[in-house]
Amino acid sequence: MTATTTAAARTLDGDARLPGAWPLGLHRGALEIRQFFRQRDQVVFTFAFPVVFLFLFASIFHDDVEGSGVTASQLYVPAMMASGIMSTSFQSLGISIAVERDEKVLRRLRGTPMPPAAYFLGKIWLVLFTGILETAILLAVGTTFYDVSLPSDAGRWLDFAWIFVLGLTGCALLGIAISSVPKSARSASSVVVLPFLVLQFISGVYISVDTIPGWMLDIGALFPLKWLCQGLRGVFLPDSAKALEQAGDWEFGRIALVLAAWCVGGLVLCLLTFRWKSRRDG
């Protein structure tokens, strides 16, 4: 990585001037994506996990949901899309950055002339690429097997765009922040996966929101996953399904405010907690 960064820093006239963070971030993003796809087991697990769970839950619970005009299978499609977005951002970054810190990759990168912003831009490109691919796969499965209809008007697609961008950004920043919690690479998976698993149960991913106790929904409402699920249901399900929501409405305005707040709050957490060295290195 150091050799690649040094090579990228050379200009055509031979000067050792370092390019800006943006072109280096693009270069690192391409490198991150290539490295990701070289790990075939990780690729298969990342993209297959939510699809397999969608098939399982949609096969077990597939009856019509009373008073909603949709089936339980259709409810799971946007929920699993939201879970997939958080998986490729929060879970992926939380674990991978913790491992890179423990293996002193971050420390070596910090010792190069590369701007720190380029490292994070590279991660953002990776998360954006995998998030779009994961969402496309789940949407293809939902429309093919579970009669989920694509939006017919531009307004709903616009809603989908900002929900996706804000949700992915907030979850990615939260993943970067939580990467500082594990003390070692060995504990990274446990530290990151446990809160993500709990959030999936109390945010309407595995269990319909109309059957979750109110106090659990109130806790889930403090985090972005619940609003990401609700927003995607509002995009891909008919308005009759509003009856299942806690407030009886999609609440797009509140979704925008909460996800935007998590983008700002996640950035603040990253600035306050991120470390280039592990705790053992001081």
Rank of each mutant, 00 (worst) to 15 (best):
E66M: 04
V127Y: 01
A185R: 12
V165N: 01
P19A: 05
R40G: 02
R280D: 15
F223Q: 00
D102N: 15
E251S: 10
G25L: 02
G220D: 07
P182F: 02
A256G: 09
P224Q: 03
T6M: 13
V258D: 02
G265F: 06
I202R: 00
I255L: 03
L199E: 02
S203Q: 06
A118H: 01
L197D: 02
G204E: 02
F274M: 10
A260P: 00
A117R: 10
P182G: 08
F120W: 11
I202F: 11
A118E: 03
A118L: 05
L257R: 06
G234V: 00
V258C: 08
W227V: 06
F36D: 00
T169S: 15
T5N: 09
C263E: 10
C171S: 15
L126G: 01
M86F: 13
L150A: 14
G25P: 02
A241N: 05
P238T: 08
L18W: 12
G131F: 04
R17Y: 01
V181S: 08
P19Y: 07
I178W: 02
E251R: 12
F129N: 08
D63T: 10
A118D: 04
V70S: 03
C263Q: 10
P238G: 09
I85A: 04
S180C: 05
V209Q: 13
L18E: 14
Q74V: 06
F236H: 05
I176Y: 00
K183A: 10
A72H: 13
T5H: 07
K277H: 14
V205L: 04
R10T: 03
A72E: 15
L166I: 07
F47A: 01
G111K: 11
A241L: 00
L217H: 09
F37L: 10
V258T: 02
A82Q: 04
M80K: 06
M86L: 12
T46W: 02
E134C: 08
L18N: 08
V165R: 04
L271S: 11
V70M: 09
V198L: 12
V181H: 10
A8I: 01
A48C: 04
W22K: 10
G265P: 06
S203K: 04
V52N: 08
A221I: 03
V77L: 04
R275N: 11
V235Y: 00
W250P: 02
V198H: 05
L121F: 07
L259T: 05
G266N: 03
L257K: 05
Y146I: 07
D63L: 06
D63P: 10
V70L: 11
A241E: 01
L272A: 14
S68Q: 14
A188N: 02
G170N: 05
H62P: 09
A7K: 15
A243L: 09
G111Y: 05
A177I: 05
A3E: 15
L106M: 12
